[in-house]
C-alpha cells in the first residue's frame, strides 16, 4: 500500500483536495507529521514509546511555515523519504531563489539585497519609488513601498522590531499592479493552472517562463508569480506552498490531480513497502476519518 505524507500544519481546502485526488488514484495519504510526535533523526529506530514512527514513502510539502517544512523535509531525507516540493524555493529563501534565477539568466526585476535599514533606503533612492520589500523568508508577504514615508517607516520597523533577520531583505524595483500579475502553477515541469485578475489572456511566453523558473529551481510543485512589464514578463516572486483553491486549470487535470499524478510517477518504481509489514503503520482507514490531526496516524 503506497503511503503519502502530506506535510502541513492543518488540513485546509488544498490539502483535503489533494488527499481526495490521491485517494482517487488509489494512494493512501495522511497528514504528516503526526501531532506532537517527535521525529526520528536518521535511520528508523523504535521510539521511546516502543512504537515505530509511521514513515511514509513520499512526503508532499504543503507546510505554510517554511522553517518547520525545511526541518521536516531534512529529517525525511535522512530517513530516505523523498519529498515532492518546490526545490530551491522549499529548502531556501528568496535570496536563494533570486540567485538561482539570475544564474540562469531568467528575467527578473532590478533587485538589491539589503542588510540594514540604511541599505534599504539607499536601494530605494537608487531604484526610485514605488518599490517592494521582499523579506527573505518566503512565508512573509512582500510589502509595497508606494512613497518615501512608507519606505522609511517599513524599513525602520523591520530593522528595529525584526532585528537582523527583519533587516535582511530584497528590495525590488516597482510594485506591479494586480491586473498585471499572473500566478502560474507548475507541476512536474508543466504549467498546469493559473490565477490572475488580468483581463486579457496569458501568452505562451509567460507559461514557458514559469516552466523555466520551476526547472531552474528544481521544483516539483511551485507557483510562479509573473509580472507583465512593458519590457516583457519578469519573475516577480515564487510561492513554494501555494493556495490553489481559485486556480483555473490549463490542462485536463486540476492542480490536486496533477500533484497526485506526480506522486504516482514517483511511486511507480517502488515495488514493495520499505518497512517490514509488522512495523508498517495502519494507514488504511485514515482518509475516511476527516483530516483532524489527532485522528490521523496510529502505528
Amino acid at each position: 500500500m503506497a503511503t503519502v505524507g502530506v506535510l502541513c500544519a492543518r488540513g485546509r481546502v488544498e490539502e483535503k483536495a489533494l488527499m481526495a485526488a490521491l485517494a482517487e488514484a488509489g494512494i493512501v495519504s495522511a497528514l504528516f507529521p503526526p501531532t506532537d510526535e517527535p521525529l526520528p533523526v536518521g535511520p528508523l529506530f523504535p521510539m521511546a514509546s516502543g512504537r515505530s514512527f509511521p514513515v511514509p514513502q513520499i512526503v508532499v510539502d504543503r507546510h505554510p511555515d517554511r522553517q518547520i517544512a525545511r526541518a521536516v523535509l531534512a529529517t525525511c531525507r535522512a530517513l530516505d523519504v523523498p519529498g515532492l516540493c518546490a526545490g530551491i524555493a522549499a529548502a531556501g529563501d528568496r535570496l536563494d531563489v533570486a540567485s538561482a534565477l539570475a544564474a540562469k539568466g531568467l528575467p527578473r526585476p532590478e533587485t538589491a539585497l539589503c542588510t540594514s535599514e540604511n541599505a534599504g533606503l539607499a536601494a530605494v533612492a537608487a531604484m526610485g519609488l514605488p518599490a517592494t520589500v521582499l523579506p527573505l523568508d518566503l512565508k512573509s508577504q512582500p510589502i509595497d513601498l508606494p512613497d518615501i514615508d512608507t519606505a522609511e517607516a517599513v524599513l525602520e520597523h523591520r530593522s528595529v522590531l525584526g532585528g537582523s533577520e527583519g533587516s535582511l531583505g530584497l528590495v525590488q524595483a516597482g510594485t506591479p499592479p494586480p491586473e498585471n500579475v499572473v500566478t502560474i502553477f507548475v507541476i512536474d515541469g508543466v504549467a498546469t493552472a493559473l490565477e490572475t485578475s488580468m483581463a486579457m489572456g496569458v501568452s505562451v511566453e509567460v507559461l514557458r517562463l514559469a516552466e523555466q523558473t520551476a526547472r531552474a529551481l528544481f521544483a516539483d510543485v511551485i507557483a510562479v508569480v509573473i509580472a507583465l512589464t512593458p519590457s516583457g514578463p519578469i519573475v516577480w516572486d515564487v510561492r513554494p506552498v501555494p493556495e490553489f483553491r481559485h486556480a483555473q486549470a490549463l490542462t485536463e487535470l486540476s492542480v490536486p490531480q496533477a500533484i497526485a499524478q506526480a506522486v504516482q510517477h514517483r511511486l511507480e518504481p517502488v515495488s514493495a513497502p520499505r518497512l517490514p509489514s509488522d512495523s508498517t503503520p495502519d494507514w488504511t482507514n485514515l482518509v475516511t476519518q476527516g483530516t483532524r490531526r489527532d485522528l490521523v496516524i496510529s502505528a
Binding site: R10, G11, R12, G290, T291, R292, R293, D294
Partner: peptide, 13 residues
C-alpha cells in the same frame, strides 16, 4: 452568538 469561538469539527481550527 456573534463573537463566540467554535472549533471546526473537521480540521480543528
Amino acid at each position: 452568538e456573534q463573537g463566540e469561538i467554535v472549533t471546526c469539527p473537521d480540521c480543528g481550527v
